[in-house]
Simulated scan of single mutants.
Amino acid sequence: MATRPRDLADRLAGRRKPNDGYLRETFNLPRDQARTRARDFLTRYPKAAYMSGVESWRELPGGNIEFTMRRLPSAD
């Protein structure tokens, strides 16, 4: 619980999306489907052109994988 207005402001600031120009997509899939989805993403948006990659991932209880892919909006 926030005790000061500054505590609340800090907590809300942590929720902001980074303004670094990347587009992000988050997925929550079973392990095999997660691998397939990540491969498809990297095939569609190659790292050399879009600087794409897996930004973060974690294994959830039950075996699902939650992961975030990022890429630049264009290949310029």
Score class of each variant (00 low, 15 high):
37 R>G: 01
55 E>W: 06
67 F>S: 01
41 F>M: 05
36 T>E: 13
45 Y>A: 10
33 Q>P: 01
47 K>V: 12
42 L>Q: 05
36 T>M: 12
34 A>V: 00
28 N>P: 12
2 A>D: 10
45 Y>E: 08
46 P>G: 04
34 A>S: 06
40 D>N: 15
27 F>S: 01
25 E>M: 00
63 G>I: 09
15 R>V: 06
18 P>N: 14
18 P>Y: 15
44 R>I: 06
58 R>Y: 06
50 Y>P: 01
55 E>C: 05
46 P>A: 04
23 L>I: 14
62 G>P: 01
15 R>G: 06
22 Y>A: 00
17 K>N: 09
39 R>I: 13
63 G>N: 06
44 R>W: 09
9 A>N: 05
31 R>A: 14
51 M>V: 07
69 M>I: 02
49 A>C: 08
41 F>A: 09
54 V>H: 09
1 M>H: 06
65 I>H: 01
58 R>V: 10
57 W>H: 13
65 I>Y: 02
64 N>T: 14
26 T>Q: 05
12 L>C: 07
20 D>E: 02
44 R>G: 08
7 D>G: 11
40 D>K: 12
12 L>I: 13
69 M>P: 00
29 L>M: 03
50 Y>E: 03
7 D>F: 12
19 N>Q: 15
23 L>R: 11
51 M>Q: 11
23 L>N: 07
23 L>K: 12
16 R>F: 15
47 K>T: 12
39 R>D: 14
61 P>S: 08
72 L>S: 04
24 R>F: 02
1 M>W: 08
26 T>W: 01
64 N>D: 15
63 G>E: 10
23 L>Y: 03
72 L>Q: 07
45 Y>D: 05
44 R>F: 11
1 M>L: 11
21 G>F: 00
19 N>R: 13
4 R>Q: 05
73 P>I: 06
66 E>Q: 15
35 R>K: 07
4 R>N: 05
47 K>N: 06
69 M>V: 01
60 L>I: 08
14 G>R: 11
22 Y>E: 05
47 K>G: 11
42 L>K: 09
71 R>L: 04
40 D>W: 10
76 D>G: 13
76 D>R: 15
24 R>N: 04
20 D>T: 04
42 L>F: 13
67 F>T: 00
31 R>T: 13
4 R>E: 08
53 G>S: 07
57 W>R: 06
55 E>Y: 13
